[in-house]
Each structure stands twice: as structure tokens, then as C-alpha cells.
Design a protein around this nucleic acid. Structure first.
Lengths: 208, 208
DNA sequence: TTAGCAAACTGAATTCAGCTTAGTTGTCGG
DNA sequence: CCGACAACTAAGCTGAATTCAGTTTGCTAA
């Protein structure tokens, strides 16, 4: 998965939008949103600082766009992975796998998402920022619903122990995404190891 | 637990340090670190903006101090709770309980901690900030060790299934603290409910 | 070929929150 | 009463984000 994953429908052939988003993922992911200078991203892409405002209303607008794309990918990955699982149990395993079967770029996106999730809480003053924020919230809600439904199906079929499905979904999701706070590609722990353990944890939690 | 919990050893009788920390917890916790104006905190405490610099080297120094105190409390709470547990199993239950048996002030502190944990990764240029950062890192490591040791003891006694104790500790901790990203006092879900579910999850995960 | 036009871009100026400086007030032990 | 030091302030500095007032580039249609 390269930077072209970040190209979206409505940008022309000369557009540097995708390149900006790529640089943003790199910088925001490595040094953090606040610590990266907006002008650094411009330099990295090879344009003047103010050209950024041709594509994004603000630095925060860019961040929210990165977050929205990341959330969208997660949602898609979940759907594809669980689409025709033979059982709720298998769907759960595939869902967890889909969360960790990702590129380094997506790892950074997830790290950015976790680090800045609080940004989604309160209203933004600018219109385009607010639009992205609401899109993000909608996607977060959708992802939570995906998991809630997966759990509910398992409970209805008797595969999973009965529990408040929404609260349980939040807890499992929390367990899965908490990893992005400390995981680094090339570090001591591999994603495979993590995936194996987290899968085990999720299965143990829901099994009656 | 009031603001006086934030009073530390070496501040005089007229000191507004604790008051500043209290206001900081409130503001950083409610609207976020970046979104709160440093001057707002001064106004809230009833001093001029520049008086803040008598107590803290910077806004970030204040944040790091808040984080350090929060981490210290968590560490203490864990130790007190698990001190003379009759079994690893019971220690685990008490440890989880201690994580959720906290005041609203501490809930905010935990939220702040989770939202700004990335701040602990990279070196700070100022000396006092760096000192607080290192203290925070040390406390994070200590807390992780506490949990790792708890798990290891349980594995050694045969109460818990054998697993990489450190990775498992991180995972359990992740599950426990992920809550602070969405929990709000007075919201739909109570801390008691959460505590009950998370305890259940942790127990299920470690049980052989 | 070229006029027109929109996307892409720029340098200079502005804003504003965090921070610095230089100096003032208040309290307390000796 | 006085020196010392904690507590504080007004005025000004700094730098990163943003706005402004344009300029360049490349495509399309006459």
C-alpha cells in the first residue's frame, strides 16, 4: 500500500493532495500532530507553505482527513474480512486478523487516530473541518456497530456468552486498538505475536 | 478527593501550585491540552498569565506534572489494593477494581494521561520538563512491571495460563485504560458496570 | 494559434498563544 | 527595621498558523 491509497475521487492529475496526506501520515505518525510544523510538510512535498491551503483549510483539516481515511479503511477491512464467515466465532477471529493485517502506513494512521481521537469530541469552527469530524464520528459509530452486531449474532446463536453487546464491543475494540499506542514496526514484538495474543484474548472473553 | 490531593511536598503556604494543577486537570481533561489556553487557567486561578511561570516552566511542564501525579496515584493504588491478596486471582480482581475505584478528578487525570501519552516518547528540550517526562516514563514502566509480576506469580502458581507475561500485561492494561477514551461521569454507562465487565474479561483471559 | 479560465502556487503581512524580561509587591525570620 | 525570597505583574517578543493579494501553469475551445 503506497501513497496512492490516499488519492481520493475528486482531485485532478496535478493535485498534490495525496502527496500532502502521505507526508502528513509520516510526520504526524512519527513526531505527533502538534510537534510537526505545517511548513515541514510543505517542504517535504516540495511546495510553499501557503500552497497547502489550496488543498486543506488548516493543519487540523488535514489531520481529520487522514483520520477519516484511516477509519474508512478499517471499516472496509472489517466488512471484507467477516463477509462470509461460517460462524460468529470465525468472524471474530477474522475481524481481529483484519485489524492487524496492515501496512506500515496504516499502522501510522492508526497511531494518529488513537493519539488524536479526542479531537472528534467537540465541534470545529470551520465548515470543512466540521464535515470531516462528523464523517469520522459516523465511521467510529459504524465500526462500533459492526462489532456490536458481530457479538450479538454470536450471542443469539449461542456461540458467545450473553452480555451487553455494545459495552463488550467497546471493550474488545479497546483491547485491539490499545496496541497502537506502543507498537512500533521493527520493535521487539511482531504484529503476528500481537495478533495471536489478542485473538486469544477476544475468544476467551466471549466464549461461554 | 479534592484539589489538595495535588499539593506536593515543597510548596509554601501561599503557593497556588495545587490550584493551578487543579484548574489544569479540569481544562485539559474537558477540552484537551492544545485547546485550552494557558491564560484561561491563570484567569480561573485568579492570577495574571505570567504568574504561571513562577510555578511551571511551560504549559507542557504543567501537563507533564499532572501526568506524573496521576501515574503515581495509579501505582500507589495498585500496590495498596494488591498488597495482601490471598491469591493471584484475587490480586487481579483487586487490581482491576483499584483502577476504577476513583474520583472524577482522577478520571480526568486518566483521560489526560491517555490523550497525551505520546508526549512521553520524545525528549523535551527544557530541563524540568525532561525531568517530569522521565519520571512519567519510569512510573509507566513500574506500573507495567507491577502487572507483569502479578501475572508471572499467577502463572508460577498455576492459577494463570502460561503466556508472555509482559505482552499479556500490556494487553490487560490496554483493555483497562482504553475506557478513559470514551467514559464520561454521568454518562450512560457507570464505572461499576465497566469494572464488572473488565474484571470478567481479565479473569477469562488469564484463566487456564 | 491563442484567449480564457480554473487549478496550483507564491511572498509578504497578520494574528495570536506561549513565553521572556525587567521590575514591583508582600511576608517573614533575624 | 531590613534583607531575602516567594509571588506576582505590565509590556513586549517569538514563531507557527493563517490570510491576502496577487502570479504562474496547463488545459480547452474558438
Amino acid at each position: 500500500m503506497g501513497v496512492d491509497t490516499l488519492r481520493e475521487a475528486d482531485d485532478g492529475p496535478r493535485s498534490k493532495r495525496a502527496a500532502i496526506l502521505g507526508a502528513a501520515v509520516e510526520h504526524f505518525g512519527e513526531v505527533g500532530f502538534e510537534a510537526t510544523k505545517w511548513s515541514e510538510i510543505a517542504k517535504h512535498v516540495g511546495i510553499g507553505q501557503t500552497a497547502l491551503y489550496h488543498y486543506f483549510e488548516s493543519k487540523a483539516h488535514c489531520l481529520l482527513t487522514v483520520m477519516r481515511i484511516g477509519l474508512h479503511n478499517s471499516d472496509e477491512a472489517f466488512r471484507t474480512a467477516t463477509a462470509d464467515a461460517p460462524s460468529a466465532h470465525e468472524a471474530l477471529r477474522r475481524a481481529v486478523r483484519s485489524a492487524y493485517d496492515i501496512s506500515d502506513l496504516e499502522v501510522r494512521q492508526n497511531r494518529i487516530l488513537q493519539a488524536n481521537i479526542a479531537l472528534l469530541v467537540s465541534e470545529r469552527s470551520s465548515e470543512r473541518e466540521e464535515a470531516e469530524r462528523l464523517a469520522c464520528r459516523e465511521l467510529v459509530a459504524t465500526i462500533e456497530r459492526n462489532w456490536t452486531e458481530l457479538l450479538r449474532r454470536g450471542m443469539d446463536s449461542g456461540e458467545f456468552a450473553r452480555r451487553d453487546p455494545q459495552l463488550l464491543a467497546r471493550t474488545l475494540l479497546g483491547t485491539i486498538v490499545a496496541v497502537w499506542r506502543w507498537y512500533r514496526p521493527g520493535g521487539e514484538t511482531s504484529l503476528d505475536e500481537i495478533c495471536e495474543l489478542v485473538t486469544h484474548c477476544c475468544v476467551r472473553i466471549v466464549t461461554p
